[in-house]
């Protein structure tokens, strides 16, 4: 093998890489916060919500969970403009990630809600709380705590999945790698470096979510 590895371009192109990393982080930050919020709402709707809402949410969840993220992204970015909804690439990427994580986290959070002992709903009702108040003040936080590890893994999976947003020219880390590749023809080096950065991001994100979990859930869940 006569190929000689060459990483000299790193010095020249690190602003691109840095910008890519920041975009990826921004995407997952927005995606995680809004996606989990959407997922919580959908989980409430599917587990405890009004009966007319349940089939709508179920259809949304099944549709998203059984189609590739890439196609969802293309549909939002290329398909929706023909309905008159023109979106920038970052907005489209953000929406796609929120919609995607919303569906997955719905199922995860719903499992947490359904694992709540029945007595807690009854206890809430006996304190004259409305069903929604019971959900909000009694059920929600322990439910989230129960499934926090699974939810964290899903957030990491969505972060790694976000690498495809480069396909609609959103300038994330993968976009930076493609850019460097096309300028320097150092394809292998560019992709190995960005792969390692993704690996570090995944490990850091997992740790960060453990810390965040510790903040949101200072007490142990009542089992």
């Amino acid at each position: 093998m006569t190929y000689i590895f060459e990483f000299g371009w790193l010095a020249e192109y690190y602003p691109q890489i840095l910008k890519g990393v920041l975009t990826t982080l921004q995407l997952i930050a927005v995606g995680a916060v809004l996606g989990i919020a959407l997922g919580t709402f959908c989980a409430w709707a599917r587990a405890l919500g009004p009966s007319w809402l349940k089939p709508i949410v179920a259809a949304y969840v099944e549709l998203i969970r059984n189609t590739p993220f890439l196609i969802q992204l293309f549909f939002i970015f290329f398909g929706l403009p023909s309905l008159g909804l023109q979106l920038g690439e970052l907005t489209a990427a953000n929406i796609a990630m929120v919609v995607n994580l919303g569906a997955y986290s719905c199922e995860i959070i719903r499992a947490g809600i359904q694992a709540t002992p029945k007595g807690q709903f009854e206890a809430g009702a006996s304190l004259a709380m409305t069903p929604f108040e019971t959900f909000r003040h009694v059920v929600l936080v322990p439910s989230l705590q129960r499934i926090w590890p699974a939810l964290s893994s899903q957030v990491v999976i969505v972060m790694l999945g976000s690498s495809v947003v480069s396909q609609i020219a959103a300038e994330d880390l993968t976009f930076a790698a493609n850019f460097i590749q096309s300028r320097t023809f150092r394809a292998f080096e560019a992709y190995i470096v960005s792969t390692l950065i993704y690996l570090c991001l995944a490990i850091l994100l997992r740790q960060a979510l453990v810390v965040v979990g510790g903040f949101i859930f200072p007490r142990r869940a009542a089992r």
């Binding site: 093998m1 190929y3 990491v156 790694l160 999945g161 690498s163 495809v164 993968t174 790698a177 590749q181 394809a187 292998f188 992709y191 190995i192 960005s194 792969t195 993704y198 690996l199 995944a202 490990i203």
Partner: peptide, 18 residues
Amino acid sequence: GTPLLMQLFLAFFGLGLF
């Protein structure tokens, strides 16, 4: 811990090195 897309790129471009 790494994106499938990156693994595809590496397989596509990496094997070419050999």
